[in-house]
Every structure is written in structure tokens, then in C-alpha cells.
Amino acid sequence: MSEPPVVRTVNLVKIYQNGGVPVPAVRGVDLVVEPGQFVAITGPSGSGKSTLVHMLGGLDPRTSGEIWLDGKRADTMSESAWALLRRRKIGFVFQFFNLVANMTVADNVELPALLAGASARDARERREHLLGALGLTGRADASPAQLAGGEQQRVALARALSNKPSLLLADEPTGNLDSRNTRDVLRLLGEVHRDGQTIVLVTHDARVASMADRVVTLLDGEIVDDGALGTARRRPRGTAGDVVELRG
């Protein structure tokens, strides 16, 4: 039997109550993400992107519909079962980092690997690799409060990848980064993706979205486009050089 999809949603719906008025945020999303796929979710603010990934990570309960992760029904689980699943299988990069304030950067990054059962040595090696890739080796002993916003965001990404989760979920992972740090993040995402990491991330940043295998666009809580990005060779015209020439 082939591997089940890492993510499958069936008619997924989220309705918030705003002072007694129902506000639909996600309206019937069917989404299947196969193992190893890198999916970028785009769309205007308020289109339901963040709500969708929060539901996939069990951080926001769904109103109706189904969520299946690695072939197991997840939306009906208790909160503690979700917590266990997240620890084992999901890495999550929040818009607002959520680092543990009284632990060093190094401990923040190693913790998920240790909780998932990695040896101290493996957790340390993984942490050193991730912090190195993100240009943060020199910050390992700092506490989160000593870091700039962009550094905290990269630590949050390193932490999310530390236990090699079967699913990486991220909400605007480059939202606070300048272009040089964005490039480091892109390179790391490319690297883990080549190693088979499944990624679902919400982004406004076209540099990030353009690295995905597939781009899903939401509008008013519904999927309005879902397609693979072509490679340069398959596109007849409009190479990068032309862009530079046109705009430069």
C-alpha cells in the first residue's frame, strides 16, 4: 500500500463568533498534501490562511469537516492527544515565535528533539547544524529576550525542525526578516525539502512561495487556485534575464 497523505482535509470549515455574529474564516477546504511535498498557501489578509494552518496543527478547533494526518483522523482528538501528536510529528513556526523565555537558544532548539526521544548527542548535533545554517551559531547561549525579532524568528524555525517532524507548518516564517536572513531561511527550507521534509506554509513573500512545489491560493476562506509551479525550462519566455532587462 502506498503511504497515506501527510495531510488530508475534507470540507473543513471554521466559523468564528464575533459578538454573536458568525464570521466564516474557512469555508469548505479540501486539501491533500503528499509526503515530501512543499505547499505554499497564499491569499490576501483575512482569506483564512492562518486559520487553516492553525487548524492543521491542532491549535484552533475546526467547526466542521475532517482533518487526517498521516492517515489518522485528527480533528476528533482530545487536546492532550493533539499535544502528543504535535510533539512527535509536527513542527510549527508561529508568527509570534513562542520561544521559552527562561531557556537559552540552544535549549529551545534541542528541547523538541529530546522530547521526541532523540539522544542528547543527536539533539545537540541537530541543533548545531540548524543554528549554523541560519547564521545563529554565535547566539546559542543567549536568552530569547536578548535576540532581535528576526533572530527569534529563525530560532523558532530551527526549533520547529529539530525533531525532524513529519510535517512542518509555518505561518509567515520570513515575516520579520531582511533579505539576507530570508536567503538563509530559503536555503534551509530548500535543504530540508530535498531531504524529504513535508512543508505547508503560509506566506506573503513570493521568494518563499516560489520555492514550493505547489501554490494554493485562498480567497474568502475558499481555495481559488491550486497548482504546481512550472520549471524555468518549460516556460517558453520570460526568463529572469528578461525581467532584469525590463525592470532594471
Binding site: 497564499t42 513570493a206 516560489s210 520555492m211 501554490v215 491560493t217 487556485d225 509551479l229 512550472g230 529572469a240
Partner: peptide
């Protein structure tokens, strides 16, 4: 959009 993202990938 797909065309622009393809250019961005290039």
C-alpha cells in the same frame, strides 16, 4: 500569479 511565481523561481 503562477507566471510571476515562476519568474521569481528563476
Amino acid at each position: 500569479r503562477r507566471h510571476y511565481l515562476g519568474l521569481m523561481r528563476d
